[in-house]
Design a binder for these strands. Structure first.
Length: 430
RNA sequence: UCCUCAGUAGCUCAAUGGCAGAGCAUCCGGCUGUUAACCGGAGGGUUGUAGGUUCGAGUCCUACCUGAGGAGCCA
C-alpha cells in the first residue's frame, strides 16, 4: 500500500510503500540508516544486509543524498525514532541517482543557500515554514469566506500609481503604453465593495523601493478586505479577529512545524482578543517616556515599533496617525482633522507592522482636493472619483502582508524565508 | 541611496607581513542501533578583480565587483 510519512502512525505494523528522496544516510557496516523524505515528512528506514541481500545492500551504501528512492517495508513503532516510527526495509528501488548534492547536512551561508533556493526548500526547516505559510493563507481565505466576504481580485497591471507616493515597476504594455505592476489592490477593492458589499482581494503586490532590510521584499503577497458602510472601529475589529483566527489555526494544525522551528508556543498562545488599542498620540507619549528621540508628526521607525510592541504581550493597534504622513485617501477624523482614521497593527516581539488600513474619504470634494494636493493626475483617478459621485458611503478596509505574518508566527528572523522564491533588491535568481 | 562588515578548497571557517590549514562533502577502507553517527586513509587552492607598498602580501594601501547587517520607505 502506498503511504505518506505524515500518516505513518495509521500504518503501524503494516507493509507500506514510501516514495521520496534520500535525505541522509548513516551506516554501520551491516546496517544502513536511511532518512527518507517524501514531502510530507521525514522517517528513518532501517536496512540490514540480512533482509535485502548483499547486492541491494551495497547499492544503498553508495547512494547519495537526494537520490530518488522507493522503499517497501514494514512500519514499526520505536522509542528511538524522532517521529515515533521507523520502517524496516524489505526492498529499495532507486528511481534516479543524485550526484554531489550541494546542500550538505552542515551549516551554510545565506548567499550560498539563496543561490540554491530551489534546493534549499527541501530542508526540514524550510518545509516547515512553507507548510505554515500554506496554513496561514488557507486560514485567511476561510476567515473571509465564512463571514460572507466575496473574493474579487484586482488587476496586477495598472495604468498609474495607486497611491502615487512609492515607486512602481514599469512594464512595456504593447506598443506605446507603459503599465505598472500593482502595489495595492485597494482602490479597485473600494469599487468592488460598492458593488458587492464586503470583498477581499488576495494576490501578489510589487514595490520598487530600494529597501534593504529583513522586513522587505519587492514582490510579496497581501490580503486586502474592504467593507462598505464600515467605520474605523469595524476595521479594527475585523483586523483583530483575522489575526486571532490565523494564529489559532496554526497553533491547532501545525504544532509539528512550529516544533521544528523551535517556536516559543506560549508567546503565540497569548494572541487573544482584545488587542490593546493605542492612539498615535499615546504611542508618541510612550516613546518619549521611554527616552526615544521621537517627535510628534513623524512616522515610527523600526526601533520605535519595537519599543511600542514590547509594552504588550499581543499585537497592538495604533490608530489616528497624522494625516500628513498617510496616504491621500485616508479619511480625516471629524473630531480632529489633523489625524486620519487609520490603523496599523504591530506584531509582538519586534516583528513590526503586519497590517495597515483605515477608513477612506467618502466625500467627493475632499477627495478631489487631496488628489490635487498630492499632485496626482486627476484624469487617472476619474473612475475612483466616480465612487464618490454615485452613492458614496463610509467604507474602509486594510491590507495584511502574508510574509510578515508568516515570519512572525514562525519566529524566524528574515522575510526571505517566508516565501518560496523571494524577490529582493539584489536578488531575482532562481 | 547612505553607514558598517565580509569575500581563502564544493561548503563552513583558521592562518603575528615569512612553507596554504582544519572540519564537513567527495573517493577508498572499517564498524549490526546510527540520529549533523563514528574511526583510518586519499584527492582537492589563480586567497573576489585590478593596481600599489615591501626583500617578501591571504594579511598593509587604493579602486572596483559581489554579498550580508542596519537606516530611510513600507505590508
Amino acid at each position: 500500500m502506498i503511504a505518506y510519512i505524515e500518516d505513518i502512525a495509521r500504518h503501524d505494523g503494516q507493509a507500506v510503500t514510501l516514495r521520496g528522496w534520500l535525505h541522509n544516510r548513516r551506516s554501520s557496516g551491516k546496517i544502513h540508516f536511511l532518512t527518507l523524505r517524501d514531502g510530507t515528512g521525514f522517517i528513518q528506514c532501517v536496512m540490514t544486509k540480512q533482509a535485502v541481500g548483499d547486492d541491494a545492500f551495497m547499492r544503498a551504501d553508495h547512494l547519495a543524498q537526494e537520490s530518488a528512492i522507493v522503499v517497501d517495508g514494514t512500519v514499526r513503532a520505536d522509542q528511538r525514532a524522532p517521529g515515533g516510527y521507523e520502517v524496516d526495509v524489505a526492498r529499495l528501488e532507486i528511481v534516479s541517482e543524485s550526484l554531489n548534492y550541494p546542500i550538505t547536512p552542515k551549516e551554510h551561508g545565506v548567499d550560498f543557500l539563496m543561490d540554491r533556493r530551489h534546493l534549499w526548500i527541501r530542508a526540514p526547516r524550510q518545509q516547515a515554514i512553507l507548510r505554515i505559510r500554506h496554513e496561514v493563507i488557507d486560514a485567511v481565505r476561510d476567515f473571509f469566506n465564512a463571514r460572507g466576504f466575496i473574493l474579487a481580485d484586482t488587476p496586477i497591471f495598472t495604468p498609474a500609481a495607486c497611491e502615487g507616493t512609492t515607486t512602481l515597476f514599469p512594464v512595456q504594455y504593447f506598443d506605446e503604453e507603459t503599465a505598472y505592476l500593482t502595489q495595492s489592490g485597494q482602490l479597485y477593492n473600494e469599487a468592488n465593495a460598492m458593488a458587492l458589499g464586503r470583498v477581499y482581494c488576495f494576490g501578489p503586490t510589487f514595490r520598487a523601493e530600494k529597501s534593504k532590510t529583513r522586513r522587505h521584499l519587492t514582490e510579496f503577497w497581501m490580503v486586502e478586505p474592504e467593507m462598505a458602510y464600515a467605520d474605523l472601529e469595524e476595521v479594527m475589529n475585523l483586523a483583530e479577529a483575522l489575526v486571532v483566527h490565523v494564529v489559532e489555526r496554526v497553533l491547532r494544525t501545525r504544532r509539528r512545524e512550529l516544533a521544528v522551528l523551535e517556536r516559543d508556543i506560549a508567546k503565540l498562545e497569548r494572541v487573544k482578543a482584545p488587542f490593546p488599542r493605542l492612539s498615535y498620540d499615546a504611542a508618541a507619549k510612550l516613546l518619549k517616556e521611554k527616552g526615544l528621540p521621537f517627535e510628534w508628526g513623524g512616522d515610527f521607525g523600526a526601533p520605535d515599533e519595537t519599543a511600542i510592541s514590547e509594552q504588550f504581550d499581543r499585537p497592538v493597534c495604533v490608530h489616528r496617525y497624522p494625516s500628513a504622513i498617510k496616504a491621500f485617501y485616508m479619511k480625516p477624523d471629524p473630531a480632529r482633522p489633523d489625524v486620519a482614521l487609520c490603523v496599523d497593527v504591530l506584531a509582538p516581539e519586534g516583528y513590526g507592522e503586519i497590517i495597515g488600513g483605515g477608513q477612506r474619504i467618502d466625500d467627493y470634494d475632499l477627495l478631489l482636493q487631496r488628489i490635487k494636493e498630492h499632485n496626482l493626475p486627476q484624469e487617472a483617478f476619474e473612475w475612483y472619483l466616480d465612487l464618490r459621485r454615485y452613492g458614496s458611503v463610509p467604507h474602509g478596509g486594510f491590507g495584511m502582508g502574508i510574509e510578515r505574518v508568516v515570519t512572525w508566527i514562525c519566529g524566524i528572523d528574515h522575510l526571505r524565508e517566508a516565501i518560496p522564491y523571494p524577490r529582493m533588491l539584489y536578488r531575482i535568481y532562481p
